[in-house]
Simulated scan of single mutants.
Amino acid sequence: MIAEHSVAELTTRARHRIDVTFAGKPPDLGALRRIDGVRRVEPNTVAVHIDVDGSTAELIKAIAPYDVVDIVSHEPDLEEVFLAYYGKD
């Protein structure tokens, strides 16, 4: 049986890459890593790079109290969408 899903539905399942820039001290990175769906948190000199599977709602709630200056979301490409659907990392 072939499963039918919309491209939008498949995209929500894929991993999102997000770069968050803070004006001051970023939140505790360990706390960010414990958020449901967060797969990777990597600090950089300018931003914190975060990979999230599925919804980003909990991540946004967690960073909202901090002085966020910029958020850049890198949408998954078609290959990442299909790999997420078929369960490959």
Rank of each mutant, 00 (worst) to 15 (best):
G30Y: 02
D28H: 08
D28A: 15
I63P: 09
A62M: 11
A31P: 02
A23L: 11
A14Q: 01
T21I: 04
P43W: 05
A64V: 15
D70L: 15
R17C: 04
I18G: 05
L10P: 02
A8C: 03
V48L: 06
P43Y: 10
R15Y: 05
R40M: 07
I60T: 08
V68K: 08
M1A: 04
D28E: 15
V52P: 01
F82I: 09
G37S: 03
H49Y: 04
R34N: 12
V38F: 12
V81H: 00
E80H: 00
G87Q: 11
H16P: 00
E80F: 00
M1N: 02
S55I: 08
D19P: 04
A62V: 07
I63K: 02
A47E: 01
K61R: 15
I18E: 07
Y85V: 04
V69D: 14
P26I: 01
R15T: 15
D67G: 13
L32W: 01
I60A: 13
R39H: 09
L78T: 02
I35K: 06
S6A: 07
D77H: 00
V41D: 10
L10R: 05
S73K: 06
V48W: 10
A3S: 13
K88S: 11
T45P: 13
A57Q: 06
V20P: 07
N44I: 06
V72R: 12
E9Y: 00
A31N: 05
Y85L: 10
D51V: 08
D19M: 11
H49I: 11
S73F: 01
E80N: 00
D51E: 14
D53M: 08
V38P: 15
I50L: 10
K61Q: 14
A62W: 02
H5P: 01
V52F: 02
P26F: 02
G87P: 12
E9H: 02
I18K: 10
V52S: 00
V46M: 10
A3T: 07
I35P: 14
L78H: 03
E58N: 08
D28S: 11
L83P: 08
E58D: 12
R33D: 12
D70C: 13
P26S: 02
R15G: 03
